[in-house]
Design a protein around this nucleic acid. Sequence first.
DNA 1: AATAAAATATGATAAAAATCATATTTAAGA
DNA 2: TCTTAAATATGATTTTTATCATATTTTATT
Lengths: 143, 143
Amino acid sequence: MFSNSTKYAIKATLYLAVNSSENEKVVISDIAKPINVPKAYIAKILQALSKKNLISSTKGPKGGFYISEENKQVKIAEIVNAIDGETRINSCLLSLKECDSGNPCSLHHLVYKEKQLIIERLGSTSLEELAKHIKSGKSVLPL
Amino acid sequence: MFSNSTKYAIKATLYLAVNSSENEKVVISDIAKPINVPKAYIAKILQALSKKNLISSTKGPKGGFYISEENKQVKIAEIVNAIDGETRINSCLLSLKECDSGNPCSLHHLVYKEKQLIIERLGSTSLEELAKHIKSGKSVLPL
DNA sequence: AATAAAATATGATAAAAATCATATTTAAGA
DNA sequence: TCTTAAATATGATTTTTATCATATTTTATT
Ligand code: FES
Ligand code: FES
């Protein structure tokens, strides 16, 4: 469903949503370890997210990555699309050019409705919501 | 969701379900072309399926691949598991060791129920059913 | 101004997945 | 029994994805 990079992106972003703010920036090494992703790899991913303004960063001493007030409203789907692009998640299970109920592949009716529901949820769920969920112990941020 | 190989496996198997029987065997070249998959590649996949008795084959002249009466009851999930293994489709979106509602990752509640429903459907839908669907024009076998 | 601590940009390497190729085995038909 | 048409087994190559490394830029602190 997601590429490895996107999984890492989500994990890292959630980590930031839980553990950072404009005046509690987090340095790459301190993100990489708890989410169990190689430092150089997660660095690249965070740079891409930062470039698209989905997370925030500042260079230099006392710098680091963080989730600004605005970033809190970023939706999971935005993270996914930033890394995987929009095509991957929306494409037909059997590789028709497009997944279209007017010209459905043989598996379409088995999955489309539920898949759309999931995609909608990813599009409406913000980092802030999930961070609250994690903080209250209802879900766990995996390593 | 599925690997490329699994997609091809499903396409090829459905093609056979629609176009073959014990006395209408189909040769590799005649499968590869309509489903738009390289011959040598689909050959390898069909061989794997045949070895697991999900499809049938005979060697030599007049030989080829086909779907036997028994094979008609094969479920889509069996094809998927034969190629991708059982782990891939069942694994946690964020790579927890296992996807478990008792120890859910942050995305679990957004997807689990629907994902399970889809997996169940793949497990209960047979080649025969989908072949009928295709024959009646309700869905299309993609190239 | 100099230093150092951070992200950023860029590219190199390694691992996995997808694709291609070919020699071997089997069985039908002449 | 010989030839030929098919699957089967095995392995090589290519492409993609994941991972690692490093030089550059920016900015806070001294
Ligand atoms: S057309 Fe294939 S999943 Fe929708
Ligand atoms: S625990 Fe992650 S999807 Fe279920």
